[in-house]
Design a protein around this nucleic acid. Structure first.
Lengths: 322, 322
DNA sequence: ATGGGCAATACTCATTCTGAGCATAAGACG
DNA sequence: CGTCTTATGCTCAGAATGAGTATTGCCCAT
């Protein structure tokens, strides 16, 4: 390795020939919401996310990702944002001293009815049944998860560690005065992973304890999915990203169902409308839709300007007015 | 180097000779706040951020980063979070067909008076003078930036592009009914870059137009810094990260000055206190500090529990109470 | 054509948050 | 003892929220 002087000289000096078998992988969490369910593009019978190596032909990371996803799923990629980058020593099985860098992305689209993508779209709650609170607290939480997590906490070597685990459990699952926070998807998955309650954790020959319901994925794809869900759940609250998931015209109820699907919880209808309208995110198209029983609903579209405007709203500090 | 098939199965192929010299670089935006100024750890006379290649010995990306930063700056790294990963084709000057993946991190510490780190700590406003609104709207905005950006907008090939540019300018710099939004540091930098108003943009033999005040950096380090500033400015509003920047005990005014330094704007004192206190982020130590003229201020410390509790607060949807 | 069923919309109301100030308290200093 | 300076307290109006109640339209079955 070239002895590299701090920062100054050209980043990446001469390669001295040390075998630097770094491989860069691109992975996509591609989400759509159809029929009130948040869906995920999967491959390999639902066991994998679309992914592929970053190659020299690719103009950029994003375009590399687009190439792979479109090639593997025949589905165009709309809005894309980077999620996280991580490195693992041993993910590639055959390669000796390799290193894999995985760069993950979140993509949002509309599921295209015209384009048959096989059975590759699946509800993300297939993978995380405990994340769907739309019909109330999922039974699996009390029946299986919490008892198992408590056992995990009690198994800790020291009481300090046990207490810390209980804290984490209480926060992640809304116990002891804490509320359920839908944004903690990743923390919950990691807790369950550490406790050996998901298949991925016991794969490498662990204790093989009781494993929760919820589909398994290869490598750490399920963790990446959890990262994507958490990011999206946080983001819909301050950026109008739902846009990307909705058809050009929609009723407010459809919009609400979409938000509920993503968040995994129900929202107050009247207040939701008030919120949407006062933020001026949408405007009436003039049409109405009457597919459901009941009074027909007005159709809305997103205000074109919004994409730029609102999107950059930012939150608040107690500023001084000058 | 192995050619890898999509989706995880590693297929060891012969090295075809295609030079896949992927190099992975770790870069740190290391921030501290001292004397009411947000400071940045730099190297190479302030032209570079601490960085170094990710190597096989490193246990993880983060530990690799820590190694480099501690080696280059002799300063320990506290809180760390990943910022962004990007790839460039041509960053390495000498290497033929190389690719550089840069993974950037934001780190927060306290500047250690005991440990002399040379002149390596610099105010981040040295690099972005237009980002500091604490003493009012910086003169450079009206005197230089806006005229130059307007010229840039007018130079657009089509009126559509020109209009779009004006929109971006108005949003980024708080014109036409928009407020100044301190979180848009990156967007502003990119706008200025595109307009050829920062040194980095004209380096490769551009028009060499008038360049703004503000220190230059190598490669895209300044862009990375802008990313870090934007992230931190956004984050202090919903996560108690200021913690990492404050000494163990502090007055509320000191805390306020720290937040103001980061945000680049002044906050309303009484309301700031109310906010901090009602969130129960801090508790009194019992001591008071009387270094300034005026009534001595109570000293506070962060509530130990906060790190876990509040930190995972999450924002709100109009939820239904069940 | 009439009355129910079902959503969509419209309003209300109490509470909590926020933005802005005014007022008072406590040391330090001449 | 006034005065300067910063720390703290307290007030108040307006905006934002959480939870409901009331009305309005359409379709359908009687």
């Amino acid at each position: 390795m070239a002895a590299k002087k701090a920062g100054g000289t050209a980043v990446g000096g001469p390669d001295t020939g040390a075998q630097r078998a770094v491989e860069v992988n691109l992975i996509a969490v591609l989400v759509a919401v159809t029929g009130g369910e948040p869906r995920l593009m999967t491959l390999d019978g639902g066991k994998a996310l679309p992914s592929g190596p970053f190659e020299l032909e690719h103009r950029s990371l994003q375009s590399g990702l687009r190439d792979w996803v479109e090639q593997q799923t025949h589905h165009p990629l709309g809005y894309v944002e980077q999620l996280y980058t991580f490195a693992d020593r041993d993910r590639a099985e055959g390669v000796a001293l390799g290193r894999v860098i995985s760069i993950s992305y979140l993509g949002l689209t509309r599921e295209d009815a015209a384009r048959p993508s096989g059975d590759s779209w699946r509800s993300w709650y297939d993978y995380f049944p405990w994340e769907d609170w739309r019909s109330g607290r999922p039974p699996v939480v009390d029946a299986v998860i919490l008892p198992a997590l408590n056992a995990f906490a009690n198994l800790a070597a020291t009481e300090a560690v046990a207490a810390q685990r209980r804290q984490r459990i209480a926060l992640a699952f809304g116990l002891a005065g804490n509320e359920w926070n839908e944004e903690l998807t990743l923390q919950r998955y990691e807790l369950l992973f550490e406790a050996g309650l998901v298949a991925e954790a016991v794969r490498g020959g662990g204790e093989g304890g009781a494993v929760l319901p919820g589909r398994e994925m290869i490598a750490d794809h399920r963790r990446i999915l959890a990262t994507g869900i958490a990011r999206l759940r946080a983001k819909i609250k301050y950026r109008p990203v739902v846009f990307e998931l909705m058809p050009p015209a929609f009723t407010l109820l459809q919009l609400q169902r979409c938000v509920e699907a993503l968040g995994g919880r129900l929202v107050h209808k009247q207040n939701f409308r008030r919120l949407v309208e006062q933020q001026e995110l949408v405007e009436e198209t003039g049409e109405t839709a009457a597919e459901l029983p009941g009074r027909p609903a007005k159709l809305f579209r997103f205000r074109p300007a919004v994409e730029l405007e609102r999107s950059i709203a930012g939150t608040k500090l107690p500023l001084i007015r000058t």
